[in-house]
Design a protein around this nucleic acid. Sequence first.
DNA 1: TTTCTATTGTCTCAATTTGTAACAATAATA
DNA 2: TATTATTGTTACAAATTGAGACAATAGAAA
Lengths: 235, 235
Amino acid sequence: MMDLPSEKDYLSHIAYDSVIFGFSDNTLKVLIIKYHNTGFYALPGGFVRSNENLDDAVRRGLMERTGLDSIYLEQFYTFGNIKRYKPEVMRIILEANDHQPENSHWMLDRFISIAYYALINYNDVVPRPDALSDAIDWYSIKELPTLMLDHRDIIIRALATLQDNLEKKLVGGNLLPKKFTMKELQKVYEAILGRTIRRTTFQRKMLSLGILQRHEKRYSGRAHKAPYLYSFKKK
Amino acid sequence: MMDLPSEKDYLSHIAYDSVIFGFSDNTLKVLIIKYHNTGFYALPGGFVRSNENLDDAVRRGLMERTGLDSIYLEQFYTFGNIKRYKPEVMRIILEANDHQPENSHWMLDRFISIAYYALINYNDVVPRPDALSDAIDWYSIKELPTLMLDHRDIIIRALATLQDNLEKKLVGGNLLPKKFTMKELQKVYEAILGRTIRRTTFQRKMLSLGILQRHEKRYSGRAHKAPYLYSFKKK
DNA sequence: TTTCTATTGTCTCAATTTGTAACAATAATA
DNA sequence: TATTATTGTTACAAATTGAGACAATAGAAA
């Protein structure tokens, strides 16, 4: 059994939650952890060290959960409603891990949570549970388990932000390997936007933006024309 | 001299800053406070009570500064960089108001700040300073004084968010009285976007959106055709 | 009263972008 | 060699936007 994080090392009242998106089977998915011995499903999250940038705290957590650094990460909202404050939930989680925190323990106090979303290449990752959780798995955004607190709302808002940023910041490529076909990119767009897109219009639009580098063809072994591979140009 | 806020009444490490936009003289302006006896210029901000929603804390502060409730308010970013942490700045402010806080005082600790922007009708407001400030005034976003900490960056980010939301959420009308002419609305758009807009295209676009209610004409007393007044339709 | 000026509301046509479908190219298979 | 599924491109229609023209009009000037 590990020690609980000490109050002096962390900023009280401040937590973060991360919505980690991946793309697989033409479906948009998020990483969900399951807390040990409780049946609670939740977003991966954590606390901010006293001498640590907020962004760095989130990156540290992502590194621990996914093994990846330098991933696309964006803050999208801070949840500060008092209804979030449910100390009994945190107590159950801690007690399920053989901790007996005092009522005044800082982890049972009210938290405001800064939410981030991350986009990662699904195949680059073997998710790892943390000390309090015994599982971390991908769930389709259409088949989420019942989540703790307001975590479902956080995912919904993350998705809305991602939809907004998709065309504005052209972030879709972060869910794919470096090289991908136009059809693969289109499937990412369709999964995020939740609707089908006309193939020819999509291809014309993407090419006209001038942000894609065309590479060699990829031969699938199947009986049809082989598509080109593309990558996003470096800025 | 007032008492300092007590630690038990507020959430430590958490503050908010508000970028309050107004429109006057065809110019976009923000409210800036000046701290008593220090020469420090800053955004209006405050702390969150232990039993208060984050949004409500910000509305409470806006009410105190502007006398307005039910104003357009939107959270846009949370600033959590460690470089923000400059306890000597807060100490100077407090000492200039005859307080002598201990080094361990919670107001001298590190803060993460949730930033909001508000849109108000300039003429509805007579800004009021708070206990620590002796002035609160409008400044054009093009002629800001030198601001404390990262407050200039906060304004820049607020403006960028406002520009993004202008067409997406059609928030421009919140800077005007209930009834306004098409030209007035156009001037708001131009001030926010920082560029001129073609009159006829703007008029056609706005009318085609179907969100404006046309009212009586407004006679200015000058020698030309009188424009119609418009208001935004209730949703 | 008539003429003049500044501004507004609308219309027209051109330019651009997007929707839609057609078609040729091609990688394997039959 | 013909067939099939898919890809890349082109062609044309529809919709949107850019740019200017023009009539309407509220008051001032003549």
